[in-house]
Simulated scan of single mutants.
Amino acid sequence: MSRFLIADTTVDIGALRETLLKPEAGGFCTFEGWVRQTNDGRLVSAIEYEAFAPLAISEGRSILDEVRERFDITATCAMHRTGYLPVGDLAVWIGVAAPHRDAAFKACRYVIDEIKRRVPIWKREHYVDGQIEWVACHHVG
């Protein structure tokens, strides 16, 4: 099972996790990316994410297909939010189920790195001082 979602509203992460529960999986790894309060020394109040959904979903699915070929995993899914997200909101979620933990950890890291590198998602940071700026979100690290 591979599923990549672009969502403009809150997503039930428990429901996504349920889709990954497989009897052959002994390991499960998730990554959650939240809107943080600072970036490059500036206080952030929120982030606005925009995406070209058809291309973002297509590229996201390609990443999930690749991860299934590269790693010994059972299932994976990922979700990235769009819209206005205040500090603390969940922006990205990735789940990977695998027979063993090592593959789950490695696959989860691969997915987030490739999403940041390849999926057409743009972010505009809203700062506490009232300024708003587009910032790069395609670096890996």
Rank of each mutant, 00 (worst) to 15 (best):
E69T: 02
F52Q: 13
D65W: 00
G88I: 02
E59H: 09
L55G: 13
T82F: 02
F71G: 12
P86C: 06
E66N: 05
E66Q: 13
D89M: 02
A78H: 15
T82V: 09
D40V: 03
I47V: 08
S62M: 03
T74Q: 13
R61C: 03
A53G: 15
I73M: 11
E48Q: 11
G83K: 10
A56K: 00
E59W: 11
A56Y: 03
G60N: 06
G83S: 05
P86V: 00
I63C: 07
R81W: 10
R36I: 01
I73S: 05
W34P: 11
A56I: 00
S45G: 14
G33S: 06
H80C: 04
P54W: 04
A25N: 12
V67A: 14
F28G: 01
I47M: 02
E69P: 08
T76N: 14
F28W: 07
G60S: 01
Y49H: 13
M79K: 09
L90H: 07
G26S: 11
E50K: 10
E66L: 05
D40K: 14
R70E: 05
W34V: 06
I63N: 12
V92M: 10
G33Q: 04
D89C: 11
C77W: 00
R36H: 06
P86I: 05
V92R: 00
A51M: 10
F31M: 10
Q37E: 07
A25C: 12
G27P: 12
F71P: 14
L90R: 04
A56W: 08
Q37W: 06
R61K: 14
L90C: 12
F52N: 04
A91T: 05
E69D: 10
S58L: 02
G83D: 05
E66C: 14
E69M: 14
V35E: 02
E50P: 13
E32K: 07
I63M: 04
S62F: 00
R61W: 02
G41C: 06
T76D: 12
G83W: 00
R61H: 13
R81S: 03
M79W: 12
A56R: 15
L55D: 15
P54G: 05
S45T: 09
M79Y: 15
L43P: 11
E69K: 14
G27S: 11
A46G: 07
L55S: 12
E66M: 03
Y84R: 04
L64N: 00
R36P: 09
E48F: 06
G26K: 02
F71L: 08
V87Y: 02
L90Q: 08
D40H: 06
P54D: 07
F28P: 02
R61Q: 09
E59I: 15
G33F: 07
R70Q: 08
V35R: 03
A78L: 11
G27W: 04
I63S: 09
